[in-house]
Nucleic acid binder design. Structure first.
Length: 125
RNA sequence: UCAGCCGGCUGGACGGCCGCUGCCGGAUUGCGGGCGUCUAUGGCCCAUAAAGCAAAGCCGGUGGAGGAAAGUCCGGGCUCCAUGGAGACACGGUGGCGGCUAACGGCCGCCGGGGGCGACCCCAGGGAAAGUGCCACAGAAAGCAAACCGCCCGGCGAAGCUUCGGCGAAGCAGGGUAAGGGUGAAAGGGUGCGGUAAGAGCGCACCGCGUCGGCGGCAACGUCGGUGGCAAGGCAAACCCCACCGGGAGCAAGACCAAAUAGGGGUGGCCGGACGCGCGGCAACGCGGCGUCAGGUCCGUCUUCAGACCCGUCACCCGGGUUGGUUGCUCGAGGCGCUCAGCAAUGUGCGUCCCAGAUGAAUGGCCGUCGCGGAGGCGCAAGCCUCCAGACAGAACCCGGCUUACAGGCCGGCUGACACU
């Protein structure tokens, strides 16, 4: 079953302030929902495919591939109180589906890691 | 067989797993339900297990992108805004003629001009003897026509000749000349004959042009005859003139989402505004009885005609907001087949079909097999193997067009060569 999707611009802007990880085909952003977020709806996904990556046909195709990617995801890979946004890059149209799947798997791991280790050196600056 | 022209169609197929969305049906579950959601109260309707409803979920069935869905360039439908009529002006568009169409800048047929051996293709194709303007560079000269070279004529004339009168190449100034050279996109009709000092529509023939008439055609126009006698260059996608057409904004149009507050809106009555007089009042002020005067607004501008409105007050009615929801929203100048009329565009009649309605925006994701195209290899061949390619592109209110993009494939008609009979 496909997860619920983000529909409002304000929701996208909220997730933008969270953690992000770049993969060859896309950029993944993630952030816990604010305040009284219920776990009933589960993790939600949003998709951003700008005109930079191509015309309407390729943009639609990329959006459908990314959506199919999230639909196959086992529910334990995502956090139910989180919202995720996938920002497509131009490689998403041609990259093989299995590669995209492993990219997403790695990106989720990275995004769920607590911040700190990576930023250790810059903390005092 | 090769080369080419025109028109039409098509835009991979099948299967497996997993999904999205509209509609229909069913079962389950829930509930007193519903009156959309958000805050709170009240109210209304249906009702005691039937109807109904249900955010979300389950099962089954069924429909689900294009020829250009694109560019948003024209024409309409539909919706809202604007009080209606007439005239003038302005602005924008169109431009051979006739037809088709709801309409068009579209299509069909025809005419004229140009290109091609031909099938056929191309043309912003009204007016330049109404006016204004422009014609770069080159060239003597670019719109009053004009003499650079040349040609011709007579005059003067160093050299030279001489019968001593003169003649006279070169040269000098003057005149004639648009045939030749040269410049140019274009040199003010073309070709030929006559003519002439040389030339020239100066004359003649043919062609072109203008004009008049006859004939053919609905017309654009064609054709024949007479006549004029070169007068009349190009550009109107320069201004302009002529004829015809045209309100503006767009589905984010627009409508709706019970009542109670505010802002606000509507309808009706009275009253329009300013000034003066009058009346009431101690006054501030109020009333609107009388008289005079001047307006403003009403969708391009101005004029005109008709009409309405203005500010205040009273009564009644409506009346919360939104980025949300519902609707508009898909049956339409509709598709297909036949028929009749027409050269055709197209129209008539009959039959038949229902064919996407999303809204962070569905119509798909992944995989396999086959087929098509190209390259390479193997094979006598049929064929087999490997690799590559598979375009342009995604509905957003709906139609009719135009334009642009497009891998490849299929069908039909026609033309010209060559070969054979």
């Amino acid at each position: 079953m496909a997860p619920a999707t983000l529909k409002k611009r304000s929701e996208f802007l909220w997730v933008r302030g969270g953690r992000r990880w770049s993969a060859p085909g896309f950029v993944l952003e993630a952030r816990a929902r604010s305040g009284d977020a219920d776990e009933a709806s589960g993790a939600r996904f949003g998709f951003t495919v700008s005109k930079k990556v191509g015309g309407a046909v390729t943009r639609n195709r990329i959006k459908r591939r990314l959506r199919a990617l999230t639909a196959k995801l086992p529910s334990e890979r995502t956090l139910p109180t989180f919202d995720y946004v996938l920002i497509a890059r131009s490689a998403a149209a041609d990259r093989t589906f299995t590669d995209l799947a492993s990219d997403l798997d790695q990106a989720l791991t990275r995004v769920h890691q607590p911040p700190g280790q990576k930023r250790r050196g810059a903390k005092n600056a």
